[in-house]
Simulated assay, not measured.
Amino acid sequence: MRMVAGRRVDVQRSLEAWRARLETADPARDLAAGESMGARLIVPGDIEWPTQLDDLGYARPYGLWLWGDADLRFSCLKSVSIVGSRAATAYGTHVAAEFGASLGDMGWTVVSGGAYGIDGAVHRSALGGESPTIVVLACATDIDYPLGHHDLFRLVRENGLLVSECPPGVRPTRLRFLIRNRLIAALSRGTIVVEAALRSGALNTVGHAVSLRRPVGAVPGPVTSGTSAGCHQLIRQGKAVCVTTPEEVVDLVGTIGDDLAPRRRGPVLPRDALSQVMRQVLDAVPGRGGAGPASIAVEAGVDLSTALTCLGGLAAAGYVERAGQGWRLRPGTLQ
C-alpha cells in the first residue's frame, strides 16, 4: 500500500490491472481508427495542447482525442464551464440556454459534458454563437452517449470539438464520468453551476475547480427546488459566487478590470431627474384634497420661498396642480 494524493493505493493490484489492459492495447490500431473517422490525438507539447491542463499535476491526461474543426488550445483561452443537473427544470434549461447563447456571442467558449439537461441546453444554444462549444465525453469520441444527442454531437463536430481521453470504441462507465469532470474544470477559466441537487455530478466538477483555485459561480433558484439545493449550499458555504447573468459570469471568470459586469439598477423613473429639494417638496404634496404652500413647506422641511419655487417648477413639469384648497398631485403621478 502507498499513499497517493492523500489516499491509499494498492500498487501491486494497480500494476496487475494495467498489465491486463496492456495485453489488449493496440496503439497503432487506435490511431488508424481515429484517423479514419476524422479524429486526432494530441499529447503534452503539441501546439494544440492546452497548457492549463498542467495544473492537474499527476492527474494530467497523457493525451486527448479530438474530433472537430476547432483548435482546442485557442478555444480554451477564453472559456467557461457550465454544468448542472440532468433532470433540469424549465427554469434551469432557460437559464442555461441564455448563458450559452450570450457567452458565445461575447466570444467565450462554453465547455460542458454533453449530458441531458443543463449540458445539452448549453451546447445547443452556444452553437449559434460566435465561439465554438466543447463537449468533454466520458467515452470515445465515436460513441454517441447519450444516444439522444446524436444530432447534437454531429453539429458540435462541425462547429466545435468533442474531447475524450478514451481511444475509439470505448464505452462510458460511471467512474469515467467522474474522472472526466476534472477535465471540464481544468480546460476553462472557471465553472458555473446552473442547477444541482445536493448529490450531483456537477458538484464533483466544482470540487475539481476549487482544488485548481478556479472561480466557481452558482445560479440561485427557488428555495423550494431540490434541483437548486446544491447551488444554494455552494453559495452559503462560500465556495461559489452568486451569478444571475452572462455578464456576471464574465465578470467572475474574466480578466480583472477588463470584464466587469455593468452595475444593475432598477427602472429609471422621470422623478429621478428631479433635484433632492424638488423631490422633498413633491413628497409633501397630498394626492387628494389639497394643501397650502406653507403647509407643504413645513412638511418638506424647506422655507416658504423655496416651496413656492419648487411648486411652480413641478406644476410646469406636470407633477402637481392647483386645487381649491391649495396644491395636490396630478392624477396618475407616482409618489
Results as ranks from 00 to 15, higher is better:
A317Q: 07
D259L: 02
G313M: 05
G292F: 12
G100T: 14
L77Q: 15
G38E: 08
R279C: 02
G257V: 07
R21M: 05
C310L: 01
G45K: 13
A197E: 10
L252Q: 01
K78S: 15
S125T: 10
R330A: 10
R7G: 06
V268Q: 07
V320T: 04
R19N: 07
L311F: 07
P262K: 10
M37K: 09
V277L: 14
R157M: 07
A196R: 01
R124C: 08
L314Q: 04
A317I: 12
G129I: 13
N159S: 12
S36V: 11
P132A: 15
T227F: 08
D144S: 13
A297S: 08
T133Y: 00
D46V: 06
L155C: 11
A121E: 01
Q52H: 02
P61W: 09
Q325H: 09
T51F: 14
A96Y: 09
I47W: 15
D46H: 15
D272I: 13
L31Y: 04
Q280R: 15
G207N: 10
L311T: 10
W67N: 12
Y91T: 04
E16T: 02
G34C: 00
I82M: 06
T224P: 06
T191R: 02
G160C: 14
G217K: 01
E321Y: 04
Q52W: 03
Q233L: 09
E158D: 15
A316D: 10
S228C: 12
C242V: 10
G257P: 06
S188C: 10
K78I: 13
G160H: 02
E248M: 09
G63K: 11
T133I: 03
L56N: 02
G332A: 15
A115H: 06
V302R: 04
S112R: 03
D30G: 03
V9S: 13
A59D: 14
L161H: 04
W49S: 10
I296M: 12
D46P: 13
G92P: 13
V156E: 03
G217W: 03
L334C: 10
V193K: 05
G226I: 08
V11E: 15
S275V: 01
P168G: 05
P50T: 08
V194Q: 02
G104D: 08
A291F: 11
G217N: 01
L203N: 04
G221F: 04
D69F: 14
A202S: 06
V320G: 00
M106T: 03
N159A: 13
V80H: 05
G100I: 02
G45L: 14
P215L: 07
D10H: 07
K78R: 15
V9N: 12
A88T: 03
Y145Q: 10
V298P: 00
D55V: 11
R199L: 07
T333Q: 13
L15C: 14
V156R: 04
V95L: 05
V136D: 03
T255H: 14
L314P: 01
V210P: 01
S85W: 00
K239E: 10
S228M: 07
G290L: 05
